[in-house]
Write a protein that binds this DNA or RNA. Sequence first.
DNA 1: CTGAAAGCGCTTACAG
DNA 2: CTGAAAGCGCTTACAG
Lengths: 348, 348
Amino acid sequence: MRPRRGRGVTILDVAERAGVSVSTASRALTGHPDVSAQTRKQVLGASQELGYRPSLLAQSLVLGRTSTIGLLVSDIANPFYPALAKSIEDAASNFGYIVVLCNTDDDPPRSLKYLDRLIAQGVDGIIHASVGEDEKHLSLASQAGVPVVVLNRRPRLLRDVDVVISDNQKGAEEIVTHLLELGHRTIGHIAGPEYATLCEDRLAGYRRALEKKGIPFNPELVVRSKFTHEAGAQAVQELLQREPRTTAIFAVNDVVALGAMDALLERGLEIPRQISLVGFDDIEISRSPTVQLTTVRQNLVEMGRLGVMQLVDAMSNPETHQPQRIVLEAGVVLRNTAAQPADIPQPE
Amino acid sequence: MRPRRGRGVTILDVAERAGVSVSTASRALTGHPDVSAQTRKQVLGASQELGYRPSLLAQSLVLGRTSTIGLLVSDIANPFYPALAKSIEDAASNFGYIVVLCNTDDDPPRSLKYLDRLIAQGVDGIIHASVGEDEKHLSLASQAGVPVVVLNRRPRLLRDVDVVISDNQKGAEEIVTHLLELGHRTIGHIAGPEYATLCEDRLAGYRRALEKKGIPFNPELVVRSKFTHEAGAQAVQELLQREPRTTAIFAVNDVVALGAMDALLERGLEIPRQISLVGFDDIEISRSPTVQLTTVRQNLVEMGRLGVMQLVDAMSNPETHQPQRIVLEAGVVLRNTAAQPADIPQPE
DNA sequence: CTGAAAGCGCTTACAG
DNA sequence: CTGAAAGCGCTTACAG
């Protein structure tokens, strides 16, 4: 039987080689001031020679922290998340934290499973950026004393967690107002699942914009969709079937808008000549020359960065940290998928 | 001072409550057979009542495994990686492993820093899917007895690691042959950095295809580029300046091809009427109706899944595991960006 | 079937 | 400035 971990050089080996006690070796290694220069040199030398690497596992156990944070996203393959994850990983790494990635698929049991595991594993904090109905599971973390930062969702019940979110309602209101100003009057909305607050907020923005222009809200024009490309494509069919005179569509996010775009193109509709289409998020693909989606920009890099800042503060100062709600601006980005409505009725 | 971790229920609390020793509590909790049904019930009950959750940290220290794997990617915000990461996370999770995500930016020192940290942290295995010149750093892991699986790159020196890779040369040869068969004779290649074997393999495939058709290789037609959108856009400018009669371009990957596409469209060139463009990878965006990039498909989901399978085997059977090199097929996907060359010379 | 003890690899009061 | 000892929260031979 060979030792479990490679050559398994422990601090005991270093201490022996340096001819000191384990305590002294530890102090020398961790840079404790009360160590004579000579002893320190010997210990460091021994450590070098042996290729000693301290077990963070053991350190974590005694120090009570792992310098690890957990990140829950709905689905890293959904193009909304990579930029956010990158920003989080970047910022976390600057503070010496490493990040564990978990895909919840917005499935509450999965979410629970991960949360449980992360807590048991001893993560120092959790960033929760998925939107499933798992809010109650989050309290597990708080109970266990693990600070939580919630990104991109507005908690319904949870207090004492930090929140970083865009102003979804205002952003939605702005872009729908833009459509109205272009002259559109029959504007469909592909809304997201009801459980996600961001959807409700964007829907509220949509309604608000109509209201301000004195246009009655028509529930027929709102169709619910999941957060996927395919669902967006389906939703648009449904919408156009319900109301063929729709001249513009506001999709709950870009991924859904892109799905809708596919379906519209497939139907032979020209965007924006025959129908306008706008989204929300401004993910990378939306900017590409072949897409040029008019949308609302969420600053995901900033969201990730601020989320980490809040979490770091919460982890470093558990006693004094005050959870905050940070609301980011989200403004319209004009591109090529929204224009004045054509007078021409749709083909067929 | 409150306890570090929330209420901090330990196995000692459970044991006391159940009126047994810690050893017995442990055995009951871990499902050891030699525990009387009654004792087990009591312990489990106590555990329930106290809301006990075992410290995986402590368990890891004694058991010598953390059920954690490290994943190194170049950049999760690069659309190549999310699908791969998803697949890995999925498969890993099925085996009870959690994954730590690290962005190397293909920067060897960063890579080293992460590798070091992951090993010290005690990950049970590492999946390395970034392409920087950090191969020698990988041997750290092997030395420390941590199994490594390399994805999407062909190690130059390292033995005893598992490799899962697509047949880059063959894929490249196939798609360039396709261009040749369409009638192209002046085919540019936007190659990637020389340090990445996958670039060299794709370049070799490009050369092979030309050779088979008896077309002399013209080094002027090969321009090097980084793996980014922007670099692709720049590279295409360089290429067209060197050889304006280029009628088709093979980009080292889709991200680069998409950048090239931007630049071509900006120049007012129609794809594929005036110039053909093909890539490699078949990332999600390439499939979208507005892009429809002709490319070579890499099965990233399969690559991730197989990578995890190999790693799990290596972690479970360290003594008997035989590192393997698995080569995945990579075939051409015909879409809309490659067609017969026009006789019309380019505008301007 | 159960308990006392050792040990996983560290850190840190406590004495000296 | 240094060392012996206790402890972080578990598991598992070893006795009984």
